[in-house]
Design a protein around this nucleic acid. Structure first.
Lengths: 349, 349
DNA sequence: TTGTACGCGTTATCAT
DNA sequence: ATGATAACGCGTACAA
C-alpha cells in the first residue's frame, strides 16, 4: 500500500526542486518547460495536495462550523440549507455540531475553536450567551456569528456578529390576528422559560395581551418543551384547566402539532372552536390539517445572513460587530381561517 | 494580537524541552516535578493543542463526512441525526455535503477524499455508483460507506461497506396492503427513473402487481421528481388520465403530500375514494390529514448502521467489505384506514 | 527521565 | 527562473 504522492515525489520524477513544483502548482511565473514537466509528473502520479499540510502552513482550514441544538428541528434544517450553499460557493466546508441545547456542550464548541480546526463558527445557543460564552468567544480569536440574543456589554473588538429575530413582534402579530378574528380567551403553550426563545415569548405574550386590552390569566398558560409530544401534554393540561379557551398560541410549530392532535382527539373543531397559531413557519405548517397559521421568524433568512456575515469577516478581516435583525411575518392558513366567533361551526367532526 | 501558545512557548516558560512538554501533555511517564511545571505553564498560558498540526503528524483528522443529495429531505435528516451521536461519541467531527444529487458533485466529494481532510466518508449517491465512483473510492484509500445500491464487481479489498434497504419488498408490502383492503386500480407516482430508488421502485411496482395478479397499466404510472410540487403535478396528470383509480402508491412521502393536496382539491375522499401510501415514513407522515400510511425504509437504522460500520473500519483497520440490509416495514395510518371498497364513503368532504 | 533532531507536506523567502 | 532552506506545530526515535 503505497503512500500518496507529495510534491517531493513529483519533484524527483520531474527532476526539479520542490520549490518549483509548488510554484507551478500555484500558478506562479515559471519557465514553460518546467511547467510541462511538473504538470506531467503530477498528472501521472495523480497528485492531490494534502489539505492538512496546506492548512498548517496557511493557518486556515477552509472549514466553518454550525452549532445548534438539534438537527432534527426543522428550523435548524432550514438554516443549514441556506448556510451550506453560501459557504460552499466560497470554498468552505461545513461542519455540524448538535449540542442538544446543553450549555456545557455549547461552551465546548466555543472553546474548541482554539484548536483551530475551523476558521469560523455560526452558533445558535438555546440557553443564551453567558459570561463564559463571551469569554470563550474572545479567547477563540476566530470570528463567530451568534444567531439569537447577544448580551449588551460585549467587549471591545470581539469578533462577533449577531443575527436575531424579533419574536416579541412575532407573538404580537399572532395575537393581533387572533384578536381580529374575534378570539378573546387565547391560551399559550410555551417552551422552557430558561431558554432564550421561551423567555422572550413569555414576555411577549403578556405584552401583547396588554396592548389588546385583554387580561393576563395564568390558567391560560402552560409550559413544556419544544416538542410535539410535550405540546400535546401541555395542550391536554390546558384544555382541562380552561375548557373555554377559543384560541391557542404555540411557541413553535412542533408544539402546535401536538395541540392539533389533542384538539382533534377531543373533538374540538379547528378553527371553529379553537384557532391555533404556530411559530417558525416550518415545512410542517403547510402539511397539517387544517394547515397551520404560523409566525415566520425567518429561519432561512437568518441562516443566510449569518453565513454572509461570517464570510465577510473571513474574507475581509476584522471590523466592528454588526447586527442583522430579521423581521417576523405572519402566514395565515387554515387553522385560523374562519373569521367568525367560536360556536359558529358544529362541534365534533 | 499575540499568537496562541504552542508547546514551544510552554517549554520556554517551564524551562524544559518541547519533548518533555509533549510527553506530559500526552500522559507519558515523566518525573513528577516536570509534570507540575509543564502543567502549570500550560494552564497559565491557556494552551490548547493545534488540531491541524496534530493531524499532519498523526495522519488523521478525526473528521468524517456525510454526503447526500439534500439536507432538506427528511430522510437525510433522519440519517444525520443518527450518524452524528455515534461519531461524536467516538471523538469524530461531522462534515456535511449536499450534492443536489448531482453525479459530478458526488464524484467531487469522492475524489476530494485524496486531500485527506477526513478520515472516512458516508455517502448516499442518488444516481447510483458508477465505474468512476468505484475508481474514486479505491483511489481514496479512505474507508467509505455507501448507503444505497453497490455494483456487483467491486475490486478486491476496496475499503467499502454497504448499507441498503430492500425497496422491492417495501413496495410489495404497500401493494399487498392496498390489495388487501380491496383496491385494484393502483396508480403509481414515481421519481426519476435514472435515480437508484426511482428505477428500483418502478421494477418493484411491476413485480408486485404481477404477484397480485393485477395487470400492469402504463396509464396508471406517472414519473416526476421526489418533491411535493412535482408530486402534485404528477397526481393531477394521473387523475385526469385515469379518473377511476382507487389507490395511489407514492415513491416517497413528499410526493404523497403533493398527491394528498391534489386529491383534496379535487374533492376525492382519502381513503374512501382513493387510498394513499407514501414511502420513507418520515415525520411528515404523522402530520398530514389524514395521516399517511407509509413504507418505512429505516432511514434512522441505515444511518446508524453506516456510522457503525465506518467507525469499525476507522478503529480496527481494513477488513473484508460488509453489507447491512435494513428491512422495510409498513406503518398503516389514516390514508388507508378504511377497509371498505371505494364508493362506500360519500364524495366531497 | 530528558533533550536533540527529524519528519509530516506545504508555502514562501532568499540567494543564486 | 530556480533551488536550498526555513518555517507552520506536533510527536517520537534516538542518544545522552
Amino acid at each position: 500500500m503505497t503512500e500518496g504522492p507529495t510534491i517531493t515525489t513529483i519533484a524527483q520524477r520531474a527532476g526539479v526542486s520542490i520549490a518549483s513544483v509548488s510554484r507551478v502548482l500555484n500558478g506562479l511565473p515559471t519557465r514553460e518547460d518546467t511547467v510541462r514537466r511538473v504538470m506531467r509528473a503530477a498528472d501521472e502520479l495523480g497528485y492531490v495536495p494534502n489539505s492538512v499540510a496546506r492548512s498548517l502552513r496557511n493557518r486556515r482550514t477552509d472549514q466553518v462550523a454550525f452549532a445548534m441544538a438539534d438537527i432534527g428541528n426543522p428550523v435548524y434544517v432550514a438554516m443549514v440549507r441556506e448556510i451550506q450553499p453560501v459557504l460552499k460557493e466560497a470554498g468552505y466546508r461545513l461542519l455540524i455540531h448538535s449540542t442538544d441545547g446543553d450549555a456545557e456542550d455549547e461552551l465546548g464548541v466555543l472553546r474548541g475553536l482554539r484548536e483551530r480546526y475551523v476558521d469560523g463558527l455560526i452558533i445558535s445557543p438555546l440557553r443564551g450567551v453567558t459570561e463564559e460564552h463571551v469569554r470563550a468567544i474572545v479567547a477563540a480569536r476566530a470570528p463567530v456569528v451568534v444567531i439569537g440574543a447577544l448580551p449588551e456589554g460585549m467587549p471591545e473588538g470581539a469578533p462577533v456578529d449577531n443575527v436575531r429575530t424579533d419574536s416579541r413582534t412575532g407573538v404580537r402579530l399572532a395575537l393581533d390576528h387572533l384578536h381580529a378574528i374575534g378570539r378573546r380567551r387565547i391560551g399559550f403553550l410555551n417552551g422552557p422559560l430558561d431558554t432564550v426563545p421561551g423567555a422572550a415569548r413569555a414576555a411577549a405574550y403578556r405584552e401583547a395581551l396588554e396592548a389588546l386590552g385583554l387580561p393576563y390569566d395564568e390558567d391560560l398558560v402552560e409550559v413544556g418543551d419544544f416538542y410535539r409530544d410535550s405540546g400535546a401534554r401541555a395542550a391536554r393540561a390546558l384544555l382541562s384547566r380552561a375548557p373555554g379557551l377559543d384560541a391557542l398560541m404555540c411557541a413553535n410549530d412542533l408544539i402546535a402539532l401536538g395541540a392539533l392532535d389533542v384538539l382533534r382527539e377531543h373533538g374540538r373543531d379547528v378553527p371553529g372552536d379553537v384557532a391555533v397559531v404556530g411559530m417558525d413557519d416550518t415545512d410542517l405548517a403547510s402539511v397539517t390539517w387544517p394547515t397551520l397559521t404560523s409566525v415566520s421568524l425567518g429561519s432561512a433568512e437568518r441562516g443566510r445572513a449569518a453565513a454572509t456575515l461570517l464570510l465577510d469577516r473571513l474574507q475581509n478581516g476584522p471590523r466592528e460587530p454588526r447586527v442583522t435583525v430579521v423581521r417576523p411575518s405572519l402566514t395565515v392558513r387554515g387553522s385560523t381561517a374562519v373569521p367568525g366567533p367560536p360556536g359558529a361551526a358544529g362541534d365534533g367532526r
